Amino acid sequence: MNLDRAVLALAGTITLVSALLAALVSPWWLLLTAFVGLNLLQSSVTGFCPAAAVFRRLGLSSGCAFR
């Protein structure tokens, strides 16, 4: 697994868990979904993603999106 796939897998997992928690617990969990979406948007503009930095330190190889 490379860095790009790890970031996308993390974002997708957090989004799905947040939607599930919003349906079962409280609609306030949708704020977590909004946070993930905003982070993906800003990383597409700036090229900086905090999750990518963490995964890079864990030793994942770079893909084409996050260098």
Results as ranks from 00 to 15, higher is better:
Cys64Lys: 14
Leu60Thr: 04
Ala23Tyr: 15
Val25Ala: 12
Trp29Glu: 01
Ala23Gln: 13
Ile14Val: 15
Met1Tyr: 14
Gly47Pro: 03
Ala6Gln: 02
Cys49Ser: 02
Pro27Glu: 05
Asp4Lys: 12
Cys64Asp: 13
Ala65Asp: 01
Ser62Tyr: 07
Trp28Tyr: 11
Ala53Arg: 08
Ala23Leu: 15
Leu10Ser: 05
Leu10Pro: 01
Leu21Tyr: 08
Ala9His: 10
Leu30Tyr: 12
Gly37Cys: 06
Leu16Cys: 10
Leu21Glu: 04
Val17Arg: 05
Leu60Arg: 02
Asn2Ser: 10
Leu60Gly: 03
Leu8Phe: 13
Pro27Tyr: 11
Leu40Ile: 10
Ser43Glu: 15
Leu20Ile: 15
Leu41Glu: 09
Pro50Trp: 11
Ala51Lys: 00
Val45Thr: 09
Phe55Val: 06
Pro27Ala: 06
Cys64Gln: 14
Ala22Pro: 01
Ala11Thr: 01
Gly63Asp: 09
Gln42Asn: 06
Leu24Glu: 12
Thr15Phe: 11
Met1Asn: 08
Leu16Tyr: 02
Gln42Ile: 13
Asn2Phe: 08
Gly37Met: 06
Phe66Trp: 10
Phe35Leu: 14
Leu30Trp: 11
Leu58Val: 06
Ile14Glu: 05
Leu21Asp: 04
Thr15Gln: 07
Val36Thr: 08
Thr33Asn: 09
Leu21Thr: 07
Gly63Trp: 03
Ser44Lys: 09
Asp4Arg: 12
Leu24Cys: 10
Phe48Asp: 09
Asn39Ala: 02
Ala23Arg: 15
Ala65Arg: 14
Val54Thr: 08
Leu60Glu: 03
Leu41Met: 13
Thr15Ile: 14
Asn2Cys: 12
Val54Asn: 00
Leu20Met: 12
Leu20Trp: 13
Ala23Phe: 13
Thr46Asp: 02
Leu32Trp: 00
Leu3Asp: 01
Ala34Phe: 13
Trp29Pro: 01
Gly37Arg: 01
Ala22Arg: 01
Leu58Ala: 10
Ala11Tyr: 11
Leu38Glu: 04
Ser62Ala: 15
Leu8Arg: 12
Ala6Cys: 05
Ala34Arg: 11
Ser26Asn: 15
Cys64Met: 13
Asn39Ser: 03
Pro50Gly: 06
Asn2Thr: 12
Ala19Thr: 00
Arg67Gly: 09
Ala19Pro: 00
Ala53Ser: 11
Cys49Tyr: 00
Cys64Phe: 11
Leu20Cys: 02
Ala19Gly: 03
Gly12Cys: 13
Ala52Asn: 01
Leu60Lys: 00
Ala65Met: 12
Ala11His: 13
Leu30Met: 14
Phe48Cys: 03
Leu41Gly: 04
Val7Phe: 07
Val36Asp: 05
Leu16Arg: 05
